[in-house]
Nucleic acid binder design. Structure first.
Length: 424
RNA sequence: GGAGAGGUGCCUGAGUGGCCGAAAGGACAUGUUUGCUAAACAUGCGUACGGGAAACUGUACCGAGGGUUCGAAUCCCUCCCUCUCCGCCA
């Protein structure tokens, strides 16, 4: 959620940036927010003044009662009736205006960073760089959903029996590969100064609102209605919400956390050819890195997080490219997002395996995550997060890219975790 | 699931109708002093929104929402949450 004070003070800048995100009707919406806020100020003044008067009267009445001047007290009491009804009206007006502002404000996306490219679709994203050689496979190379069957690594059918489509069962070396990746990612993040946390994977509605999944993406989360809890779509939700309603010390920053969790996504309405195999699941594993930083440091941090993820992909020996997302393809709350995609050779396409974003104050404003500066002032911190990494598509490209006619080679960095070098 | 207790500031904890945005202690910050570690003393120490150039000042907030009252942290109602004991159980 954007900060109202910022909108007031930097209206032109906000409009310019919202245009990058193709946010429709921005000028009218921003103008109406400002106008409503003017009304709000007037209403608050009325309400506050009335209450101040009523408080003063109440105090006087108290004094009079104490000194036994009951008659005079009664006269003053009579005067409070009118104030009281005014107070009620003014409060109601104020509340209505505030609700109206809030309702509009939550529909306004974050303002993109000035370097975010214009554009509407994924085709308008900018390829920042590409790394690693695209492997050339033998003639009988197979897509991962065939390899997983061939080597009995993942049983999609069995998952359908237990739960439904999109809930695969990992078996044998397939399961072991999952565990290896999780351990590798966590160890690596820990070595880079991230504090490992193991959060709940069910969260309450407040947490959903805090990071912006609610109300915008309500239908994308699994909801346990009896207890009114949501299965997390990403560890970002619990790990970032740890800092909801928290005032940090400036010296605490930056806060670096990482965590592994299963992630659950309903993926309502996304059926088609992209859902084959591991490409899109309802349940998958992911290691997330989250940072809370000083506002002046967040872009530096974003680059640091991006290069961290690159390091992982390099060590996994996967060909990948970095995309800077255009305004139209960025998520609602992000100010700047890099996507990382790995090449999936047998499918001959790029698969998104990580998304690293700076949310600036968009999340922290909702979360009320602030820090107290050395100057004594309290202000909003910046929040960032990135996948490091999401497993299924990593597994898909590992299997496809490393296949030979006799088996699938495991990258060196994983071998001490898997305990085997080849799947055959 | 059954029974009970309780939710006050960063923490502990006082506060049963006006003098309470809230005692006291701790923690923290700054300053003074003792040669260092440490201690002592002094001062400061909530958030949000509004008014003001500023000093300063108004309003709201003692789990949430209603109500009683001229006046509520304090009384009443509803809800939420936490803890303890018993039962069940990994």
């Amino acid at each position: 959620m954007l900060q109202l004070a910022y909108i007031r003070e930097h209206k032109e800048d906000v409009l310019k940036r919202l245009a990058i995100k193709n946010f429709k009707d921005a000028e009218n919406i921003i103008n109406s927010i400002i106008e409503l806020d003017n009304n709000r100020k007037a209403a608050q003044r009325q309400a506050d003044d009335t209450k101040a008067e009523a408080n003063a009267l109440a105090k006087q009445i108290g004094e009079l009662m104490k000194t036994g001047k009951k008659d005079e007290a009664e006269i003053l009491k009579a005067k409070t009736a009118e104030l009281k009804s005014n107070e009620k009206n003014f409060d109601e007006t104020l509340n209505n205006i505030e609700k109206e502002i809030q309702a509009i404000l939550v529909t306004v996306p974050n303002t993109p960073h000035f370097t975010v490219p214009n554009g509407k679709t994924p085709e308008d994203n900018i390829t920042v760089s590409q790394h690693g050689a695209i492997p050339v496979l033998h003639a009988k190379a197979q897509p991962h959903w065939e390899l997983t069957t061939k080597y009995d690594l993942i049983d999609f059918e069995l998952g359908v029996k237990l739960t439904g489509a999109g809930f695969p069962v990992y078996k044998g070396k397939g399961a072991r590969l999952q565990r290896a990746l999780i351990n590798y990612f966590l160890d690596k993040a820990t070595s880079k100064g991230y504090n490992e946390v193991q959060p709940p994977i069910l969260v309450n509605a407040d947490s959903g609102y805090g990071t912006g999944q609610l109300p915008d993406k309500e239908g994308q989360m699994y909801h346990c209605q009896i207890d009114d809890l949501y299965l997390i779509p990403t560890a970002e939700v619990p790990i970032t919400n740890m800092f909801r309603d928290v005032i940090l010390k400036e010296t605490d920053l930056p806060i670096k956390n990482c965590g592994y969790t299963p992630c659950f996504r309903r993926e309502a309405g996304s059926y088609g050819k992209d859902v084959r195999g591991l490409n899109r699941l309802h349940q998958f594993d992911k290691i997330e890195i989250v940072q809370i930083t000083h506002p002046e440091k967040s872009y530096e941090t974003l680059e640091e997080m991006l290069s961290y993820v690159c390091e992982l992909l390099t060590e996994l020996e996967l060909p990948y490219r970095i995309l800077k997302l255009c305004g139209g393809d960025m998520s609602f709350g992000s100010a700047l997002t890099y996507d990382l995609e790995v090449w999936s050779t047998a499918q001959a396409r790029w698969l998104e395996v990580s998304s690293v974003s700076n949310f600036e104050t968009f999340q922290t404003n909702r979360l009320k995550c602030r820090y107290k500066g050395t100057d004594g002032k309290t202000q909003l911190a910046h929040s960032l997060n990135g996948s490091a990494l999401a497993l299924p598509r990593i597994v898909a490209s590992l299997l496809e890219n490393n296949q030979t006619e006799t088996g699938i080679n495991i990258p060196k960095v994983l071998q001490k975790y898997t305990g085997f070098e080849v799947i055959n």
